[in-house]
Design a protein around this nucleic acid. Structure first.
Lengths: 199, 199, 199, 199
DNA sequence: AGTTAATCGAGACGGTACGTCTGGTCTTCAC
DNA sequence: GTGAAGACCAGACGTACCGTCTCGATTAACT
C-alpha cells in the first residue's frame, strides 16, 4: 500500500500529490468501515492517512465531498440484461443489496445520505449523483419498453425513482438482507400492478 | 408560552416538572425549524429552553429520543378513506408531503432518519416507529382488499413499504413539491402495473 | 502533585474546580520550565494538566492572563531593609536576579513581556502589574528619603523605573549572572552620579 | 518601486536577485507596520512581496534574521555632540524615542526583542547587535570623559547599558512619549546622583 | 554554442496550535 | 430527592503558519 512504503510523503512540487489523495481516500474508506459514520471525522481520516488536515480540506471542501469521491471510486454494481424485465429488476436489486451489504459501499452511501441532511453542498452533490443513477437505472426500463415489455405511456424516470426509493429505504433501515422472494414480490407488483379488477 | 412566562423555572420538588418538559420539546422544535438539523444540538435546545443539559439527558437518553418525541407530538397526517384505493393513496401521499412541507414535521423526521444513521438506539426507535406506521398505512390496502379492489395474494405490508419508501426518498432529497400528476402516475403504476402485456 | 493523584478530575458542580485551576497553573509553569516560551502553548498546558482546552479558556482569556497568574503565584522577591540605600538597592537587584535565575520566575516573566508585544491585553495587564511593582520598589527610595539619604527633589518613581529597566534588560538578554561588582557599580553611579565635577 | 514594475520577478540566473531581496525587506517592513508583530509571518511577507517562501528562507534563516536586517537598513538615529554630556544624553534619548515613535523602527525593534525570547539565534544576533550599539553609545560617555566631564573611574559600558535599559523598557511598555522633563530628570540623576549627602 | 547550475515564483506537503463548539457526566444548591 | 445550572474532560471543527520539498522557467557562467 502507498501509505506503508513511504513513511512521510513529501510534496512533489506545486501540484497535487496523487499518493496523498490515494492515501486519504483509502483512509476515509477504512475509517468508515471500522468506526462507522459516527466515528468518521476529518481528524480521524488525517491521522489514518498520515496526512495533514489542511491537505484534506484543500481538496475536499467538506466531509460530503470526500464521502462522495470515496463512493464513486468503488466498483459499480452490475446492471443485468437478461432480456426479461422482471429478471433484470430483481437481479439489479439483488446485486445492489449484495454490493451494499458486502462491500463498504453501503456504509459509505448511508453516510452520504445522512451527511446530505446536514450539509447543503452534500445535498446538491447527492442530488446530482442520484439524478445520474436514476437515468442509468431508467435504461433497464427503456430497454424493456423497446422490447415491448412495458406500456408506451410509462415514464421510465418515475419507475426508476420508485425502484431506487425502495433500495434507499432498505439501506437506511438496515434491511439489505431481504429474501429474494420479497424483492421478487415488489418487482412483480410493480410490473403487474396490485389491482384485482381489470384482469 | 412556557418559556416566556417564567424567566427561571425552579424545581417543583421531587418530581418531573411538566413545564420543563414542555419547554424543552418546544425549544427542540423551534431550534430544528430555525437552524435545521445541522444546528440542532442538545446544547442549543438547553439554551433555548433555559434548561440544564442534564435535565434533558435525564428524560431523553439521546438526541434521537428527543426528536422522536417531538415528531410524535405533532398532529398526525390524515389518512383519507374515499372508498377508492387510488384516491386514498394519492390523497395520503399528498397529505403527507404537504404535512412535511408545511409544518416542522418534515425537518424533524429527516433529522430522525439522519440521526438513526449515527446512533444505534435511534435506529431501533425509528425501526419500531416505522413498523407501526407501515402497519397503519397498510390498512389502506387492507380496506381496499376487503372491498375487492386489490388482488387476494397481495401482501399489504410490502405495498406499504413501497409507498413509504417513495415518500422517504422525496423527503430526504428535498422533493416534497412533486406535482399531483407525478404522484398519481406512481400510484397508477403501482395499481395497474407497468407491464404492456397482461392488460 | 495534584495531577497524579486523580486520574480524571470531575466537575464539582456549577462552580470552578480549584483542583483544575491548580493543576493548570502548575502545568503551565512546568511547560514553561521544560520547553520554554517557544514551547508554551495552551494545548501543551491542557495536555500536561489533563484538562480540556475550554476549561483553560473559560478562566484565562488569553495566554497572557495565564502567564500573569503563574507569575503572581510565585514567591515575592525579598526587598531588603538594611538602613543603607546602597545596600538595599544592591541587595534588591541581587535578590531579584537570583530569584529570576533560580526559580521559574525569570522564564515566566520573560514570556510575559514577550507576549505583551503580541497581545494587547497582555500589554495592559503587564503595565498594570509593572506600575504596582514600581511603586513597591519606589518605597526603598522613599525610606531612604525619609532617612535623609536622598535629596528632597528626587522623584522615587523615576528612580524605580530606572532600576527596573536595568533588571528587565538583563532578564531579556540573558545576563542575570552579572557579578555583584557590576551591580554595585550601577547602584553607585546612580547614587553618587557619574559627573566628575560637583564632587 | 520594484514590486510594482514587474508583476512577476524572474530568476536572473545563478545568483541572488537583488530586486527580490529588496522587495522582501520592504514587504517585511510594510507588514510589520500594518499588522504589527502579531501579524508578522513569513507567509504574510511572502504574499506581500510576491515571493516564494523558500526564497525568503534561503537568505534569512529565521524570522529574527529578517527582522534584524530590516532594522539595520533603517536610518541610524543621530547621536548629538554638543560638548555637554547632559545635552548629549538627553538629546540622544529624545532622538531615539522620536525615531522609534515616528518610523517603523520601534515596531521592528520591539519585534526583534520579542522574537529573541523565543528564538535562540535571534537572541544571539540581538546580543551581538546590542553589544555594538552599547559601544557606540558608550562613546558619548568616552567623549565626556576625555573632556573631564566624567570621573575617571567610570565604566562607560555600564553607563551605556543603563541608558539603553531605560530606552528598551520604554519601548517595550509603550512609553515612548515621555516628556522631555522626565528624560532630563533621568539623565540628571545619572550625572549628579540622587544621594543627598556628599554634596 | 551548449551545458550546467543556481535562482526565481509557486504552491503542496505533514504538522502543530489556534480558539470555538458540542457531547455526555458530575456535583452543588434551591426548592 | 429532583431540577436547574454550569463546570468538567474530551475531542472535532475549520484556519493559519510553520519549515521543507519539488516543480518548471529562466539566465549567467563555464565549458
Amino acid at each position: 500500500m502507498a501509505e506503508d512504503a513511504d513513511q512521510a510523503r513529501k510534496s512533489i512540487g506545486a501540484r497535487r500529490n496523487p499518493d496523498s489523495a490515494e492515501a486519504i481516500l483509502e483512509a476515509a474508506e477504512a475509517v468508515l468501515v471500522e468506526a462507522g459514520y459516527a466515528g468518521f471525522s476529518i481528524e480521524a481520516v488525517a491521522r489514518r492517512a498520515r496526512a495533514g488536515k489542511p491537505t484534506i480540506y484543500r481538496w475536499w471542501p467538506s466531509k460530503a465531498a470526500l464521502l462522495l469521491e470515496v463512493y464513486q471510486r468503488q466498483k459499480r454494481v452490475d446492471v443485468p440484461d437478461t432480456g426479461k424485465l422482471e429478471e433484470d429488476l430483481v437481479g439489479f436489486l439483488e446485486n445492489l443489496f449484495a454490493h451494499w451489504r458486502e462491500t463498504s459501499s453501503g456504509s459509505v452511501f448511508r453516510s452520504l445520505i445522512a451527511e446530505a441532511q446536514t450539509d447543503e453542498t452534500a445535498a446538491t452533490a447527492l442530488a446530482g449523483y442520484a439524478g445520474g443513477r436514476r437515468a442509468h437505472t431508467g435504461q433497464i426500463i427503456e430497454r424493456a419498453k423497446a422490447r415491448g415489455e412495458v406500456a408506451n405511456d410509462i415514464d421510465p424516470a418515475v419507475v426508476a425513482d420508485l425502484v431506487a426509493s425502495y433500495a434507499w429505504r432498505h439501506l437506511l433501515t438496515n434491511r439489505l438482507d431481504e429474501p429474494e422472494a420479497t424483492i421478487r414480490k415488489v418487482v412483480h407488483y410493480l410490473l403487474q400492478g396490485i389491482a384485482a379488477s381489470g384482469r
